[in-house]
Structure formats: structure tokens, C-alpha cells
């Protein structure tokens, strides 16, 4: 299966991204892979690769990127930004892409609000799991964690 890279004459996607504050350094990337290796999301979802997202932006695959779910997975933990040797600022770029996706109609504003809710709730669940673990100080398995999640609304904060 081939992907044909179209030459873009006129405004290019990577330049567009670079014009937003936070996106300036995107072209610096030399695909070393540090971001992907630092990313906690890629630990859970092996197909999530920040390096690949950057690469797609540089290749000008605007549609593919802005319509993808990949730009929404970033937890903005900033680990990749700290570790990146070329200061590419991936979380900042994610913020830029989310902004562009909203502005250019790839998602509705309700979607962005929903993202905020998801953040809040997942943080809450995480805190509850941790609290339970710290209280019991036993080892914890994936099954235990999933059980806690299913009962999470019954757990007191």
C-alpha cells in the first residue's frame, strides 16, 4: 500500500503549525524516537506514536492528522518535551493541532468541552485507585484495577 506525498505549493501544513506559538520548533525533529519512548500513552496503546504524528505533519498529511484521534490522546504530561533533544515541544504542538482542529471544523466545540470532562473523570478514577492501593499496601493486579473502575462511582473521594 502506498501513500503518495503530494507536493504542497503555497501554504504548507508544517508551516501552518509552526506559525502558532508553541509550534515553532516542529521542523527541528530528527525522528530520534525519544518522545514515543517517554510517552505513557504509548505504553498503553502501542500504536500511538508521537514521532509518527510529527512525521505526518512534516509530510503535509493535514487531513489525516487533524481528523485523527491521535491528537486527542496526549495527556500533556510534558515528559517528551523535557526529554526531547531538539526542543520540539510535542504537547504544545498537540495544543496547536487541537486548536486548528476546532477552528477548521474537524471537531465541534462540544467535543473540546467533553475532553475536559474526560480529563477530570480519569484523574478522579486514578486518584481512587491509588488511594485504595496506598491504603491496602498490597500488590495490585490489572483485574483489581478494572474492578475498582467499575465500582468507581460508589467509592467516596
Amino acid at each position: 500500500m502506498f501513500t503518495v506525498i503530494k507536493p504542497m505549493r503555497g501554504p504548507k501544513f508544517k508551516n501552518e503549525v509552526a506559525r502558532y506559538p508553541g509550534g515553532e520548533n516542529i521542523k527541528r525533529c530528527f525522528a530520534c524516537g525519544t518522545c514515543t519512548l517517554s510517552c505513557p500513552v504509548s505504553e498503553a496503546e502501542s500504536n500511538y506514536s508521537p514521532r509518527r504524528v510529527i512525521h505526518k505533519i512534516l509530510l503535509g498529511l493535514k487531513d489525516e492528522v487533524l481528523s485523527s484521534d491521535e491528537i486527542w490522546y496526549c495527556m500533556t504530561c510534558y515528559r517528551c518535551q523535557v526529554r526531547c533533544p531538539q526542543d520540539v515541544k510535542y504537547p504544545e504542538i498537540m495544543r496547536v493541532l487541537r486548536q486548528m482542529a476546532l477552528e477548521q471544523g474537524y471537531v465541534k466545540s462540544e467535543f473540546v468541552d467533553a475532553m475536559k470532562e474526560i480529563e477530570k473523570v480519569t484523574q478522579d478514577i486514578r486518584r481512587k485507585i491509588l488511594k485504595r492501593f496506598i491504603e491496602k499496601r498490597e500488590s495490585i493486579t490489572e483485574k483489581d484495577i478494572r474492578e475498582i473502575i467499575s465500582l468507581s462511582d460508589k467509592i467516596q473521594p
Binding site: C32, G33, L37, R79, R83
Partner: peptide, 27 residues
């Protein structure tokens, strides 16, 4: 060909665990 993001020590053996990207893109 993979730059390394971090090194984690295994407390018992004092070995070091390194995550890297394989040539076919897996971690």
C-alpha cells in the same frame, strides 16, 4: 536506531531496563 528516553533500574538485580523502538516500529 533508537535514542533512549530513560533508564530504569531494577531494584533487586540492579540491572537496567531500557525501552527502545524496534526497526519495525514496536516498543
Amino acid at each position: 536506531k533508537s535514542r533512549i528516553s530513560e533508564i530504569i533500574e531494577k531494584p533487586k538485580t540492579k540491572n537496567l531496563a531500557i525501552k527502545y523502538i524496534t526497526p519495525d516500529g514496536r516498543i
